[in-house]
Simulated assay, not measured.
Amino acid sequence: MWLYEVPVAVALPLFVALFVGISLLIVLVLRRWIPRDGDGGPEWDRVLGYAMASYGVLYGVTLALIAAASYEDYRGVEEIVLQETSAISVLYRDASGFPEPIGSELQSVLIEYTDDVINVDWVRQAGGVIPSHTSPQLTEIEQLLFDFQPANESESNLHAATISAFNQFLADRGARIGATAQEIPPILWVVLYVGAFINAVLIGLVEVRRLRSHLLMAGLVAAFVGLVIFAIASFDHVYAGEVAIDTTLFEELKNSLLGTP
């Protein structure tokens, strides 16, 4: 979608301008059907006022709930990414307690895995492609852990704790990968866009004597609706676009804890 391929500074004005333009066009088209004074005006105002009040609440609540849900999903994926980097950090520190050469081998594989997430997984996720749930690094870590034979109780405890951390790490990785396909169902997009159209039509049917005032009112409402829907679209694909969740946490992990530039 073009929305995720251009900067927000360009996409946002274009998106909002499209909403405003359509709304103003609707006003211009519908003004000739608006009843004038002495031509059923009071009754028209009552009916339209009731319809706009009822619809305004219904669409406003729907828009707010979808916006809140999309942002909550976005924050949830941020938390998932944080959990995965934390799991890598725990594994890296646990690996330092293993005897050589297994300790260094585990740490080296974790560094390779972090590089792979940054340079391979994230590129695929940004393109909407779900990365593989398995990787050579995961297989190697699993092999190293399961082949290790503790020599004493201390190593046995460390080994059990590391395997538990590794299982949690696998779960976090799976959740991060699964979020690639996370998106709002198409039926809700239909609700949002059809709802915005109906909202513009109702505003276009309001009796306003001055065309300039009518256009200003319709434009302001359309601009706000466009802003909210743009925000929903930006949060919808968490790894795509300028608002996407990026590799910052993995890069910080690599540069600090793992000690590699």
Rank of each mutant, 00 (worst) to 15 (best):
D45A: 11
D45H: 06
D45F: 03
D45V: 05
D45N: 12
R46F: 07
V47C: 01
G49N: 09
G49M: 05
G49T: 08
G49E: 03
Y50V: 06
A51L: 09
A51H: 01
A51I: 01
M52P: 00
M52I: 00
M52E: 05
S54E: 09
S54A: 14
Y55A: 07
Y55W: 15
G56T: 10
V57Y: 09
V57H: 07
V57L: 15
L58H: 09
Y59A: 10
G60K: 12
G60S: 11
V61G: 06
T62Y: 09
L63D: 05
L65S: 13
L65Q: 09
I66H: 02
I66N: 07
I66F: 02
A67S: 10
A68W: 14
A68F: 12
A69R: 13
A69H: 12
A69L: 14
S70V: 11
S70Q: 14
S70I: 05
Y71Q: 06
E72Y: 02
D73R: 15
D73S: 10
D73V: 05
Y74I: 06
Y74W: 14
Y74V: 02
Y74G: 01
R75H: 11
G76P: 08
G76L: 13
G76V: 12
V77P: 07
V77C: 06
E78Y: 12
E78Q: 15
E78C: 03
E79H: 10
E79A: 15
E79D: 14
E79C: 06
V81A: 14
V81S: 10
L82Y: 03
L82T: 14
L82G: 15
Q83F: 01
Q83D: 13
Q83T: 09
E84T: 04
E84V: 04
T85L: 04
T85D: 02
T85C: 08
T85G: 04
T85P: 04
S86L: 05
S89C: 01
S89M: 03
S89F: 00
S89K: 02
S89I: 00
V90A: 10
V90F: 03
V90W: 01
L91C: 06
Y92I: 01
Y92S: 04
R93T: 08
R93Q: 13
R93A: 06
R93I: 05
A95C: 09
F98W: 08
F98Q: 01
P99D: 08
P99R: 05
P99Q: 09
E100A: 15
P101R: 10
I102W: 08
G103N: 12
E105M: 13
Q107K: 12
S108I: 02
S108N: 12
V109C: 08
V109Y: 03
L110E: 07
L110M: 10
L110G: 06
L110K: 05
I111R: 15
I111S: 07
E112V: 01
Y113V: 00
T114S: 12
T114R: 11
D115H: 13
D116G: 04
D116Q: 09
D116S: 10
I118W: 15
N119L: 13
N119D: 14
N119G: 12
N119P: 03
N119F: 10
